[in-house]
Amino acid sequence: MTLADAQIAPPEPPRHVMFWRRYKRNRAAVLGLVLFAVVVLMALSAGVIDPGDPLRRAGEPLTPPFVNWQTPLGTDQLGRDVMSGVFYGARISLLIGVVATLVAIVIGVVIGALAGYFGGWVDDLLMRITEAFQTIPNFVLLLALVAIMGSKIEWITLAIGIVSWTAPARMVRAEFMSLRGREFVDAARNLGVSNTSIIFREILPNALPPIVVYASVIMALSILMESALAFLALGDPNYASWGNMIGQGRAVLRSAPYCAVIPGIAIIFTVLSFSLLGEGLNDALNPRQKK
């Protein structure tokens, strides 16, 4: 007899338990998490495992890998330790990835939320601005910004954030447009809740899952953009970054390819880990999308 309406189903396990259960169902996502953990460990242990400045001369120039255990992954043409560069580079890449993504997401969420929630002329104005940004190729805009602001690491990070906010803004706007018509928003309005609270407390939490997933994509893209800048010798020369190392390794690509290949592999694995992570988050946060 199912007529009794007053009993409640037994409690579900807490949210994070459910989340982990769904996440680990995707094996590739677990691999992504492991790779990500490795990168984080590298960044954290950079000063412990391989002490010393990665820009300092550590041995004979162009020592191949696995020859001298002082410099296990070899040295570049100036005698700098490649392994130490890779470890310290992980710090820079993660820093840029996280900060630039935060900048992009914050700008994107604010603009997208306002445009999507209010609609009308607010939407028109904000979307035209977004389109203006979108018409300029990302990398060209990034080069222009770096050329204006200079190539200090803080400015580079900010510039990467500024060129990548348009896609999340459009996404947030679409989410808000569909969510603002839902009855729970009407219910909140009917209770006398203010617009700001409705936007940030009622709608935003419901719009977050796709944004979180997309954030992993932005993070991967920011790391690539920083590497590309460094490759063009526009990166901050005071920090060892993977892009810098590839850029300098280019000169000896024929004689000592490992100088460019090793940091290249590091970039590939980091970006791969973010994209697998994003896929796993998508499965875990939007369980209804699958099946």
């Binding site: 839902r182 009855e183 729970f184 009407d186 219910a187 419901n206």
Partner: peptide, 19 residues
């Protein structure tokens, strides 16, 4: 004024914030 006039909505799933 809103506190004097309240509403019960049609779709009980859509009218409660799931979060």
């Amino acid at each position: 004024l809103r506190q004097h006039i309240q509403m019960v909505f049609q779709d009980p799933m859509a009218s409660l914030n799931p979060r």
